[in-house]
Design a protein around this nucleic acid. Structure first.
Lengths: 240, 240
DNA sequence: CGCGGATTCTGAATTCGATTCAAATTCTGA
DNA sequence: TCAGAATTTGAATCGAATTCAGAATCCGCG
C-alpha cells in the first residue's frame, strides 16, 4: 500500500515547514540570532525531529539557501525566454538579479554566509552539492545564451570557453552583492544606487567583451529605458 | 615618568601577539576551529586577558582582518608609484590582488567571513570602522589614479563620480575572490586559472569603460607580458 | 623601604545554545 | 489485537564563549 509513500510526503512537507520557519525567524531577528530550538518550537516539533532533517545548523542554512534559489532561477528563465537580442537578455539577467536582491536582501546575506568557509565546510557534502545544483540553472541559462550569441555572430569568445567568459559578469554581480550587503561600506563611498550602477557597469563590461550590438556608454537614458522595459515586459510579476 | 607610556606599549605589543597567534592557529587548523582559549594559551596568558583586548571573538576576527590589510596596502602603494601609464597601473592593482590572494588565501577567507552579517554585526562599531579605514588606502590609491587618468585625458568618467567608477573593477575583484575561495564552485566550471582570467576580464572591463590606451583583447600574449613585467619590476618582493 | 589603593591578571565558574540519545509514542503488517 | 520497527520527544550532555571574584602586581607617597 501507499502508506509508506504518504509518510514520505509528509516528511518532505515537514522539511519545507522547517525551512519556512527558519526563513521567518531570520527575517524577524536576523541570521545572528537564529536558534535551532526556536525553529523546532515554531513548528511544534521537538528539536530531535528537526535534527532528523538537518544534521546541523549549517546543514539547515545551506538547505535554506538552496530552496530560496528557485525564485531567482524562475526569473532568469523568464528572461531567457524573452524575445530580444542576446545582449539585451544578458542585461536582463542583471536586472533580474537586481530585482531579486531588492526583494530578498536576506537571501544574499544568507548566501554570503553559507559560502563562507566556516559554514560551507561544516555542511554535509551532499547538501553542498544540492546547493550548487539548485543554482546551476542560472549558470546553464547564461551558458546557453552565450552559445546562442556566438552562434548568430553577436559574440566572439576570443579563445575563451563559455564558462570562462561568463565568469566576468558573474564575478561583477557577486562582488556587487557582497559590497551592497556589507553594512557601512557604501556609505563611505557615498553610493546610493549601487544596482543602478551595476547595470551600467555590466553594460560597459559587455562592450569591452565585444558583445554586439555595442551600446553607447554615454546614453544613460537608453540603458534606463531598457531596464525599465525588462521590468515591465518580462519581470513584472517580481517587482516589489 | 614614562612608566605609564611603557606599559601602554607593552599592552599594544600584546595585541599583536594575540593576533599573530590567532593567525597561526587559523593557518594550522582553519577558521572553523579557532578557539579563544587556544589563542590565549598559545600566548601564555589567561583568557580573561585576551578579553581585555577583544570584547568578543568577532572583535578579534575583524581586528585580524584589519591588521592583515597592511600588506595588501603596501603592494598597492608600490604599484601606485610605478612609472607607467595610468591604465597599466590599474592593471597593476589587479596583479597585486592576484599575488596577494595566492600568498594569503586565508586572508580572503577571513575577510569573507568578517564581512558576513553575523560576524560584522557582532563586532563593535569602532572595530568595524578601523577595519574599513585599514582598507581605505586601497580605495584612496585607486581614486587618485582615476583622477590622474581623467586629468591627462586617459579616461572620461561620462558623468560618474570616481567612487562610482571604481565600483566596477572593485566588484569584479571581490566577486572573483569570493568565487575562488568557495570550495567546489570553480571545479564545476572547469576553471583552473581564475586569477589569470580576472586580469583578462579586468582589461576588457577597462576597455569597455574607455580607459585609454585601449588594449587589443585578442592579444593574450601582450597582457601576459604586462602581468609578468609588473611582477618583475614592481612586485618582485611579494612573489610567493 | 613599606604601605594602601588602583590596576591588571587569572582561570574556575557560568552561560548559552547546539547536539545527543534513552525512553515514550506511534506505526506497521500479520 | 499484538510484537516488533520506526519515529518522536525533550531533558541531559557537551563545547566553547564569556564573566567575574579573588590573587597578584604596580604605583606614588610617607
Amino acid at each position: 500500500m501507499g502508506t509508506r509513500e504518504r509518510r514520505r510526503r509528509e516528511v518532505a512537507g515537514r522539511e519545507q515547514l522547517f525551512l519556512g520557519a527558519a526563513r521567518d525567524l531570520i527575517r524577524q531577528e536576523g541570521l545572528l540570532n537564529l536558534q535551532m530550538s526556536r525553529v523546532a518550537e515554531m513548528c511544534d516539533y521537538a528539536v530531535g525531529t528537526l535534527y532528523q532533517h538537518f544534521v546541523s545548523k549549517e546543514d539547515l542554512l545551506v538547505a535554506l539557501a538552496s530552496e530560496e534559489a528557485q525564485e531567482r532561477v524562475d526569473m532568469f528563465q523568464r528572461v531567457a525566454q524573452w524575445k530580444a537580442s542576446t545582449r539585451d537578455r544578458m542585461l536582463g539577467f542583471a536586472v533580474a538579479d537586481m530585482l531579486y536582491a531588492r526583494r530578498s536582501p536576506e537571501h544574499f546575506r544568507l548566501l554570503q554566509f553559507a559560502f563562507t568557509e566556516v559554514v560551507w565546510t561544516a555542511a554535509p557534502a551532499a547538501r553542498r552539492q544540492a546547493c550548487i545544483e539548485a543554482n546551476a540553472p542560472l549558470r546553464q541559462a547564461t551558458l546557453e545564451l552565450i552559445d546562442e550569441a556566438v552562434g548568430n555572430g553577436d559574440l566572439d569568445l576570443r579563445g575563451l570557453r563559455p564558462d570562462e567568459f561568463c565568469l566576468a559578469p558573474w564575478a561583477l554581480a557577486i562582488g556587487m552583492h557582497s559590497i551592497v550587503h556589507t553594512k557601512g561600506l557604501l556609505e563611505q563611498h557615498g553610493i546610493s544606487e549601487p544596482y543602478h550602477l551595476m547595470l551600467r557597469h555590466i553594460s560597459e563590461l559587455l562592450n569591452g567583451l565585444g558583445w554586439k550590438p555595442l551600446a553607447d556608454s554615454t546614453d544613460h537614458a537608453a540603458l534606463d529605458a531598457l531596464a525599465e522595459r525588462i521590468c515591465k515586459e518580462v519581470l513584472h510579476a517580481y517587482i516589489c
